[in-house]
Amino acid sequence: MKMTEEMYRIDRDGNKIATKNIRPQELLEDQLVQALAEQAEKLSLTLAEYKAHAFTEVLTLRDVLRENYQAKRGGKKGNMTLYTFDGSYKVEMAHADRIEFGPDLEVARALIGEYLDSVTTGAGDELRTLISSVFRMGEDRSAKVGDVLSLLRWDIQHPKWVDAMAAIRNSIRVYDRASYIRVYRRDDAGAYHAIPLDLAKVPVASATHYTTTPEA
């Protein structure tokens, strides 16, 4: 007898497994994950559509203000902040460069090593440990951008350090530009709080809907 789709499931290795041979708990798990994944796909598409719509509307308003009212809106790099008339909401359109480091970063690392070698022990050892953590490579074999750039704020006038900072600046490569739309709600105290569109930051709507005891 030919097996129909209802009579088997495909496992992770691409094998056909008869449904009757699958444990009930695995079928329940499969059903739940499949349903949640389908909902997540729809939400992701909705967010993508919202982002495209929001950018289009904000840019359209910017052009209307420029053409009809000779009002220049938008700051550095094209960033914009818009408010409702009562100030209860604001929308920010922001652009941020994504950067990585070129070969000059290794030059900077070597120069910082030479600087540390010239520093006496004690405080120098602590500084060496801190610098090592800054240059620790991630899983993709790249240093964390924020950690490396933080070194540029240190006020150290030693020639080796100054040269190292110049090497870091020379190593910076802009490889992409990310664009964001953020929406904020003002509270009673006048402070603005982002309306979370990141699933991890969205609060559970009601505690009564989440009764499972979390694992320790």
Rank of each mutant, 00 (worst) to 15 (best):
T4G: 12
E5K: 00
E5R: 00
E6T: 07
M7K: 13
M7I: 07
I10P: 04
I10T: 08
N15W: 09
I17N: 09
T19C: 08
K20P: 01
N21E: 11
N21D: 14
I22E: 07
R23W: 04
P24D: 12
L27N: 10
L27H: 11
E29V: 03
D30P: 10
L32V: 10
Q34V: 13
E38A: 11
E38I: 03
Q39F: 05
T46G: 02
L47V: 03
A48S: 03
E49D: 15
T56A: 15
V58N: 05
V58T: 05
L61D: 14
R62M: 01
V64A: 03
V64F: 06
L65N: 04
L65A: 12
Y69L: 11
Q70F: 10
A71M: 11
K72M: 11
R73L: 15
G74W: 05
K76S: 08
K77M: 02
N79R: 10
L82R: 04
L82G: 06
Y83P: 07
D86I: 00
E92C: 07
A94N: 13
D97N: 12
D97K: 10
R98E: 14
E100V: 06
F101R: 05
G102W: 12
D104S: 08
L105F: 02
A108L: 06
A110S: 08
I112V: 03
I112S: 00
E114Q: 12
E114H: 09
L116P: 01
L116R: 00
V119C: 11
V119P: 01
T120H: 08
T120K: 07
T120A: 15
T121S: 14
G122C: 10
A123E: 10
G124P: 05
D125C: 13
T129H: 08
L130N: 07
V134T: 05
R136H: 08
R136N: 07
R136E: 10
E139R: 15
E139S: 15
S142H: 08
G146D: 13
L152W: 00
I156A: 06
Q157H: 01
D163A: 13
A164L: 03
M165H: 02
A167H: 06
A167Q: 11
R169H: 10
I172W: 09
I172N: 10
Y175M: 01
A178D: 14
Y180P: 01
I181F: 04
I181R: 05
V183W: 01
Y184W: 13
D188L: 07
A189G: 09
A189H: 15
A189M: 06
A189V: 04
A191I: 07
A191N: 10
Y192G: 04
H193D: 02
P196I: 12
L197F: 14
L199N: 04
L199K: 02
L199T: 06
L199G: 00
A200I: 07
P203S: 06
V204H: 15
A205L: 09
S206C: 03
S206K: 01
A207L: 15
Y210G: 02
E215L: 15
E215G: 10
